Computed example of a mutant assay.
Amino acid sequence: MDNFFDMITLPSIITFLRFGLDLFLVWILFYYLISIVRKNLRTLQIFKGILIILIVKLLTTALNLKTLGYLVDTVLMWGAVALFIIFQPEIRATLEKIGKANLSAPVRSTMDTAKKHYILDEVTRALQFFSTNRVGALISFELNQSLEDYITAGTQIHADISYELILTIFYEGTALHDGGMIIQGDKIACASAFFEPTTRELSPIYGARHRAALGLSEVSDALTIIVSEETGNVSFAKNGELIRIPLVELWDRLAKELGWEDTIKEGK
């Protein structure tokens, strides 16, 4: 016991505190970065890949794995150049988010049951009209991952959701009908948004709207609704899948996918 207390000296205490501060600052840095990139799936995938490579590098150094360490060093040396070339838009977006980031939690609007009912009613009525009259439409609901980059690139509206406005946006005579509409919370955030189409092979029965919706579902958790101009069929795109939805189930399925089951329980 005496030897233990003899080892506790001022330099050892300072070294221990420095080590603890170092770990704490690294933890803060990772938490800060994850809080920034977690709402964009592409950026998050890049961050996870870098993190895995760094972990492997630490293991190869600690276990003295020379061959694997050489491969990791090669990846780090040339991979950094390839990373900046291939993912330049995502890296730029991440750096912009870091510069604009606020450490406080984002404030999101809360909607009561009546508001959810209203949104479901207005959107469902519009989709039924489009389906019956063979009007093509593409509507995306922002969920947990931000669609701000798409909103900024589209024609920003930030208007209340209404049946009449949705019909006007997708009316073929308007300049906004070509592209996607994004609903953010209880507002129509933008129209004429461009979604990078999927690169997967699809049946010829699926057109540009379906490909765009699938492309968005592959890089975000958004729920995207497609109305086919040729058939009038209504489909949901989420998690890289297309699901055809019968009109009679549209209201309920939309409420379920949005996580608004409480609205269903309250009754229409």
Results as ranks from 00 to 15, higher is better:
107 V>P: 05
29 L>P: 01
245 I>G: 04
17 L>E: 03
31 Y>C: 05
48 K>I: 12
8 I>W: 13
71 L>H: 03
102 N>L: 05
26 V>F: 05
44 L>D: 03
81 V>H: 12
98 I>Y: 12
253 R>C: 05
207 G>C: 06
124 T>M: 01
239 N>F: 10
227 V>C: 07
28 I>T: 07
188 I>R: 01
211 R>Q: 01
257 E>M: 06
201 E>I: 00
65 L>D: 10
38 R>E: 08
118 Y>F: 15
211 R>K: 13
25 L>H: 08
161 I>N: 04
108 R>M: 07
197 P>A: 03
133 N>V: 05
267 G>A: 08
192 S>H: 09
230 E>M: 12
70 Y>C: 05
161 I>A: 03
47 F>V: 03
100 K>M: 00
96 E>G: 09
170 F>R: 05
227 V>Y: 01
100 K>V: 00
248 V>E: 15
105 A>I: 12
198 T>N: 02
21 L>Q: 09
134 R>P: 00
226 I>E: 05
195 F>Q: 07
41 L>E: 08
172 E>R: 11
233 N>D: 07
253 R>D: 11
197 P>I: 00
80 A>Q: 14
47 F>Q: 02
30 F>S: 08
135 V>T: 03
178 D>L: 00
130 F>G: 04
50 I>Q: 09
234 V>E: 02
124 T>I: 00
113 T>L: 15
169 I>T: 02
56 V>I: 15
132 T>M: 12
158 H>T: 07
118 Y>W: 12
31 Y>D: 11
183 I>V: 11
194 F>W: 09
205 I>W: 04
40 N>W: 06
8 I>G: 08
135 V>N: 01
42 R>A: 02
179 G>T: 00
2 D>H: 11
3 N>G: 07
247 L>R: 14
18 R>I: 00
198 T>E: 00
149 D>W: 13
65 L>E: 10
168 T>F: 07
23 L>S: 12
41 L>P: 00
84 F>D: 10
30 F>M: 11
224 T>E: 08
208 A>R: 13
237 A>T: 00
159 A>M: 11
32 Y>P: 00
12 S>C: 03
86 I>M: 10
203 S>T: 04
215 G>C: 01
184 Q>W: 08
130 F>T: 04
129 F>S: 03
134 R>A: 08
263 T>M: 14
252 D>T: 15
54 L>F: 12
196 E>C: 05
169 I>P: 03
57 K>T: 04
